[in-house]
Simulated assay, not measured.
Amino acid sequence: MEAYVFDYGEWKLKKLPDPEAGPGEAVVSLKTAGLNRRDLYIPARRGNDREAVVIGSDGAGVVESVGEGVSAVRPGDEVIINPALRWFTKTGAPPEGFDILGMPDNGTMAGKIVISAEQLEPKPAHLSWVEAGVFALAGLTGYRALVTRGRLAPGETVFIPGAGSGVATFLIQFAKALGARVIVSSRSAKKRELALGIGADRAIGTEEDWQEALADETVDLVIDSIGEATFNRSFSVLKKGGRFVTFGATTDDHVDFNLREFFYGQFDLLGSTMGSREELRELLKLAEEEKIRPVIDSEYSLAQVGEAMEQLKESTQFGKIAIRIDD
């Protein structure tokens, strides 16, 4: 099979042996995969002196074969990959042994993947293959941050800095489905317009004075994944006693903030990472009921993953970047 790999310091398309299912495992013939920002960080985290690892955390396809002891799925089943490995029940933090698919385990940018059958979920019927292939990582990350950690309630207002990421486009749709008011920010007028088009109630510019722009709003919850560039600005618009959830740091991951203002404000500061299988199943149910779909920015073939990664580096996308495996 062909696979897109990071191999001894080099990105390349490489022929690899077809995988075989062992006990408890299934082989999935992949139709689509999704690119995520974590794929860009593999060189720094893996180093240049190790053999090929197949990148990719998201994917969808058809079960080709199963190993001994597998009964939950069978050949011919249409499935999506749950990239949150070995995290099954909703807990306060990931359990020992948790990891994200796509390093150190081989990921989804390949013709096939062998994976524990426990990591497979039925493909939602309302999603196309392209939509299913980009759903799980960003969707699960956003759902846990918004619902489990953020405790969003109907009628509340949530502020999401950075409107164009895959997670942000899910957050907007989830929050609206749950009856909330949604405010986003972006430096791009086009992204602000697109965010309003998928349900955001208000979109402000990154360059604006946020306290002034949102003086007439009561922000109950902030979901931030940008880090140092927006952290204190986001806190400045959050109501006293409000909740602040952070799940990423696309700018500097070290921030300074006024501790006295924080504890006098009675804020809740919450971290979040990915989510459990239990939360993914809750999310899939919500998506089915509300017909929520990923926002697809662009599609590339497996041979074009390098081009797709360049687009992701530039952060020009609005929504998800999909990879067509079966071209």
Rank of each mutant, 00 (worst) to 15 (best):
D220G: 01
L85H: 00
E261V: 11
D7L: 05
L152A: 05
I160R: 02
I183N: 05
S185G: 04
L280V: 12
K14F: 09
L221D: 01
F262Y: 14
G102K: 01
S116V: 07
G271N: 12
Y143P: 00
F263K: 10
E131Y: 07
L286C: 04
V114G: 07
I81G: 00
R37V: 09
I80E: 07
E279A: 12
A44Y: 13
A33T: 02
K320L: 08
G107E: 06
L30T: 04
L283G: 00
E121T: 06
V134R: 01
L196A: 08
S165Q: 02
S276M: 03
G69V: 05
V54E: 01
Y300I: 11
R37M: 11
R50E: 13
I292P: 02
A163R: 00
P19D: 04
E96Q: 13
R293G: 00
P124Q: 04
E207L: 11
A60T: 09
P161W: 05
L40V: 06
P104Y: 10
G275V: 06
F263H: 15
T148S: 15
N36W: 03
G69P: 06
F267Q: 11
F135K: 01
G61V: 06
E279S: 10
R149Y: 06
P94G: 07
I55Q: 10
K112T: 06
V255T: 05
G199T: 10
I183L: 09
A213Q: 12
Q211R: 15
M1E: 10
P104M: 07
L286M: 12
L312D: 02
G76F: 08
A203F: 06
F247I: 09
P124G: 04
S234C: 14
A21M: 02
T91S: 15
I115V: 13
E121A: 13
W87H: 05
T218P: 00
D253H: 15
A287Y: 00
V27S: 07
A138M: 08
L137W: 00
F257S: 11
G205L: 12
S29V: 02
A153H: 14
S65F: 03
D18S: 11
K190S: 13
R50Q: 14
E64S: 12
G241R: 07
G69Q: 08
F235R: 15
P75H: 08
I321W: 03
R50D: 07
I323Q: 07
T108S: 14
G56W: 05
F235D: 02
S165M: 00
K291N: 14
I172A: 08
A132F: 03
V219N: 04
V184S: 05
D105V: 10
L302N: 03
K291G: 10
S116C: 08
R151E: 13
G271E: 02
T157G: 01
Q311R: 15
E20A: 12
D253T: 13
I223L: 15
V73A: 03
L178V: 02
Y41A: 14
R46I: 11
V134H: 02
K191P: 01
K313E: 12
L286G: 03
N232Q: 14
K239L: 10
T246I: 14
L171Q: 07
K31C: 06
G199S: 11
G22V: 10
V114C: 15
F257Y: 15
